[in-house]
């Protein structure tokens, strides 16, 4: 299984991104943490360094809406880390949208963060790794991207598009020795699901990160987290549209 020396996580200040950073750093990987919230980012970086007993996390404040910054920041991060062999896009938002709400601004923002931000970071990452003939890219999608649900059209769309984008990226640079892993978590205890009550098959962010890293190291193509979501997702995807539209899922 691949061991990573230098990793970059975009969307690292909380949730799954932070848990991935902690786990990678605990295993000896130097990690670059990219996120918008400076306070949380620095807090996480010092916690990681404190646990490691050395500087192992570098923090970079960046808003994924600022897509033009990504290529230059990626190069700077690679230099600061002394290399780069893993890039994970973990940034994501899900706006609360009422069933009868059609808010283009919210939808556009979801697409900006979940999809265009991913493209802004993973395009230069893929170009870099493709040129070097090595490297691993992982994107955190969602089981929500497997079907268009009435409750979160933009979120579903952004994740579905992200899955397709990652697949295309894999087909583009996979032949040059680059691994592209699509991660599809189910419900994970993060800020995103706070206040949604008890959700089925929910796992902690740390547990999700543990499974994800195992899948990334193995070079999986598409991984459901936890794995039993693969079956659930298959069932959901198999429901005919004429029935699905009547379901409140």
């Amino acid at each position: 299984m691949a061991r990573f020396q230098h990793a970059l996580i975009i969307g690292a200040s909380s949730g799954i991104g932070a848990a991935l950073a902690r786990r990678l750093a605990a295993g000896g990987t130097r990690v670059a943490l990219v996120a918008r919230r400076e306070g949380k980012l620095k807090e996480l970086a010092s916690a990681i360094d404190g646990e490691a007993g050395e500087e192992r996390a570098l923090a970079y404040v960046h808003d994924v809406h600022d897509r033009d910054e990504a290529p230059e920041l990626l190069q700077r991060i690679a230099r600061d880390l002394g290399g780069l062999d893993l890039v994970i896009y973990a940034a994501g938002i899900s706006h609360n949208v009422a069933f009868d709400e059609f808010d283009t601004a919210k939808d556009a923002d979801t697409i900006e963060v979940n999809l265009l931000g991913a493209m802004a970071w993973l395009n230069p990452a893929a170009e870099r790794f493709g040129r070097l003939g090595r490297g691993t890219i992982a994107g955190i999608g969602s089981i929500a991207g497997d079907r268009g649900r009435p409750g979160a059209p933009a979120y579903n769309t952004s994740k579905a598009a992200l899955h397709t984008y990652l697949e295309a990226l894999r087909n583009r640079v996979g032949r040059r020795g680059v691994r592209v892993v699509t991660l599809k978590p189910g419900f994970v205890e993060t800020e995103m699901v706070a206040g949604m009550g008890k959700l089925p098959m929910m796992v902690s962010a740390d547990r999700a990160a543990q499974i994800m890293l195992r899948k990334i190291r193995r070079g999986s193509v598409t991984a459901y987290i936890p794995a039993r979501w693969r079956v659930a997702s298959w069932i959901v995807r198999s429901i005919p549209s004429c029935i699905f539209k009547h379901l409140k899922v």
Binding site: P71, E72, Q75, A78, G83, L84, P124, E127, R128, R131, L132, G133, R134
Partner: peptide, 21 residues
């Protein structure tokens, strides 16, 4: 920023160590 098309994997002859440059 350095031009991305200059980026290559550069190794020692033993090919056990290398880096992007």
């Amino acid at each position: 920023m350095l031009p991305h098309d200059r980026l290559e994997w550069v190794e020692g002859w033993g090919r056990s160590l290398g880096a992007a440059g």
